[in-house]
């Protein structure tokens, strides 16, 4: 009984941490004034937010073979999202810091 409650609280803690990260990401993406700052804010959601969500799911379901698949999901996302950030920053470099931002 107590074990279930501990699992529940860890899950809730991780999920609220993830929500906090995603809130930071959303606010940052819309409110920052410079494109690289916006990318930095978006990266928080992509890396730490995703990690927290998947860790929460793993603790909630317990360690099974599915946990390995979830781990692979983290690997895939952490592998691919820096590449897209890389190209965004390259576009920014070519434009010379004068891209118009949506406000």
């Amino acid at each position: 009984m107590t074990a279930e409650w501990i699992v529940f609280f860890i899950t809730a803690l991780l999920l609220s941490a993830a929500l906090f990260c995603y809130t930071l990401a959303v606010v940052g993406v819309y409110r920052f004034g410079f494109i690289l700052n916006r990318m930095h804010a978006g990266g928080i959601g992509d890396s730490l937010g995703l990690l927290c969500v998947i860790a929460a799911v793993m603790t909630a379901t317990g360690l099974k073979s599915d946990s390995l698949k979830l781990l692979l999901l983290i690997v895939f996302m952490w592998f691919t999202s820096p590449v897209s950030s890389h190209f965004l920053s390259q576009v920014e470099y070519y434009a010379g810091g004068e891209l118009k931002l949506w406000k």
Binding site: F79, T80, V83, H86, F87, Q90, V91, Y94
Partner: peptide
């Protein structure tokens, strides 16, 4: 303008 196929990061990934 913007050819990304030469990029080493994208090639590795």
């Amino acid at each position: 303008f913007f050819d990304i196929s030469e990029d080493s990061v994208l090639r590795l990934v």
